[in-house]
Design a protein around this nucleic acid. Structure first.
Lengths: 124, 124
DNA sequence: CAGTATCCATTAAGATACTG
DNA sequence: CAGTATCTTAATGGATACTG
């Protein structure tokens, strides 16, 4: 799926950036949905449809895509149960859980400094 | 510049996400270049051309765009000197500096956990 | 239930040329 | 020096229909 130009400057720049540990860490949970999904999994494991219910505005396509990436990067563990109808659930890995305190700090920083932009802030 | 559909689901989703402090914090320094730029400014203020020299693969367009956003979000302070030829420099704000210890933790997490993907990791 | 597949819209990023 | 302007390409996200 979509692997046009392996040696475009675009690709090279992305590789360059990901060589840096910090940039790697930020970019792996960047994007619109990943942290949102991870935050929903903090309390307990959830099924696909449960996550979808928690984040109603995400499409199934995006949810599936993001979950695949999070799984590949070992932020979540996917478990398939041999049942019918099918049952799959997702849970945070230990590696992901280690990030929670760091997220809290980021959150506190944001709470403290961001300017009010006419929205109510939410803590997931 | 480009303000097509104000009420697309896309826009609504972006707003929703940014109501969360944590997601705000991550997304403000997300993207390919922002953290890279900020890290270069940790030691001292730099001029436009100096940043460009530190990050040779960024285009002038991208550097200018990212600096504008970082300025707007108050991560950097832009100073114009009334000289000719023109001189402008950029420095981290106090708000941005408060994030440095958090970055360090993220970095340590990444160092510890990321799998080796055939690249040498770099600490800026 | 837990996804894929397909198609389209939006945004991010890059190349290059040009300017006060 | 410190940028803009313009154009093109790549990546991301959304809508919708369909399936094992």
């Amino acid at each position: 799926m979509a692997k046009r130009k392996e040696n475009s400057t675009n690709m090279l720049n992305e590789k360059l950036i990901m060589e840096c540990d910090l940039l790697y860490a930020i970019n792996k949970v960047g994007g619109r949905w990943k942290l949102m999904i991870l935050s929903k999994l903090q309390k307990r494991k959830l099924r696909f449809s449960e996550i979808k219910r928690e984040i109603p505005t995400i499409t199934e396509r995006m949810l599936a895509l993001q979950l695949r990436e999070l799984e590949k990067d070992e932020f979540v563990k996917r478990t398939v149960y041999a049942e019918v109808p099918p049952k799959v659930d997702y849970e945070l890995t230990a590696v992901a859980r280690e990030l929670i305190p760091v997220w809290r700090q980021l959150e506190n920083w944001a709470k403290k400094h961001r300017k009010y932009e006419g929205v109510d802030h939410v803590t997931p």
